Computed example of a mutant assay.
Amino acid sequence: MGDIIFLSVMGLALWIVYCLVTKRSIIPFVKKKEDNFPKAETAMKKSGSGKAKNEQHFEETEPDLFEDLLDDVIDVSNHLVHLKNNRFLLFAEVEPCNYFLRSQDEQEGIDSAFESWLATLNYPVQWYIQSRYIDLSEPIDEMRTNMVEASDIPINALEYGKTMLEDLTNWQTSSPRYEAKRYIVFSYEVNLGNIEADSKEERAERIEEKAWSELYRRYNNARSSLRKANMNVQLLTTEGILEVFYHAFNRKKALKFKFKNIRERENLSLYSTADQKQSRVEYVKELIKENEAVQ
């Protein structure tokens, strides 16, 4: 009788261990209740799919830089940027004055001159600072030309010059280095109530003349005032404004494909400078006038 009880207890213990290992119900013929919580893998899959849906739903698109920044620009001509609603922009480049290399008295004079100019402003003025890759191609070409043309340079000096030019070229291409260009942008909107004209063309000319006279007055005021602060202000021509836009939208390419190369290849010319018949030139002019009339 004792052996039967002992065997029964051992069998029950082995059954309990077996049920715990296999995750079965200890009571026979009764199914174990499933957990109400989903498995970890299933939860991760569901959360992952939901995250993917959210990422797809909130996916950002690249902005259209040209459409956003140049949407209001109509034309760049006669040293002005023509915008919609009879608004015009004039660009002027400002050369730095090495403020922190000046003495205390010179710094105070610069501050007072700059503050005096700011006090005279009763119109909008915008500052634009553009970072460009440093381009040493022009000074390198100039030094190389001087070395070739000079006939009285010693051999050691020639070797030193060649080594220096190679070092400058390697220094420029080894890692990107930048320089800052500083511009003042004057804006003006022409009041059409003060413009009187007999034709559409005359009206457009008078609008541009009005804008140019006012913006040029503001530029002269800035140049005369900032000259006292040892800052040279230079008016940008049409080509200079186009160069600013070129570097803004071709920052990395501008070092290899330089703006001056575009100018040298006459890609900025309105008409082709190749030899053409006069009839061909007149035909192209007529096509341009027709397109302007349609627009």
Score class of each variant (00 low, 15 high):
M143Y: 14
E149G: 09
K210G: 02
N261R: 12
N220D: 12
R182Q: 11
D167A: 13
R265H: 12
E138Q: 11
E214H: 05
V190N: 03
T273W: 10
F91V: 07
L136S: 03
E95M: 10
E209H: 06
N194Q: 13
T237E: 10
L165E: 08
D141P: 02
N36R: 13
L268N: 09
S269V: 00
F245Y: 05
T237N: 11
E142R: 14
E142A: 13
K39W: 04
N261T: 07
P176S: 07
S269H: 03
G11Q: 08
I153Q: 00
E201I: 07
A180L: 13
G11T: 12
L236I: 04
M147H: 02
D64N: 15
T173A: 07
K23D: 11
Q276V: 09
L101I: 08
R144P: 01
F6A: 15
A180T: 07
M1F: 14
P154D: 10
N36L: 10
I195P: 00
S49I: 00
E93W: 06
L270M: 03
D111I: 00
A150I: 04
Y188Q: 04
Q234S: 15
H247C: 07
Y271H: 12
R265S: 15
E95D: 14
S25L: 06
R217H: 11
R227L: 09
P28N: 10
D105Y: 07
Y178C: 02
S103R: 03
V190P: 01
N122S: 14
L158M: 15
G240H: 11
E166I: 11
P176R: 08
A197P: 05
E138H: 12
E286R: 08
T120Q: 12
E166D: 14
R132K: 11
D135L: 02
E266Q: 13
V233N: 04
K258N: 05
Y178P: 00
V244E: 03
T169F: 08
H57G: 04
K32Y: 03
E282R: 09
D72E: 15
K31V: 04
L83M: 06
M143T: 13
R87G: 08
V94D: 09
T61G: 09
F249G: 03
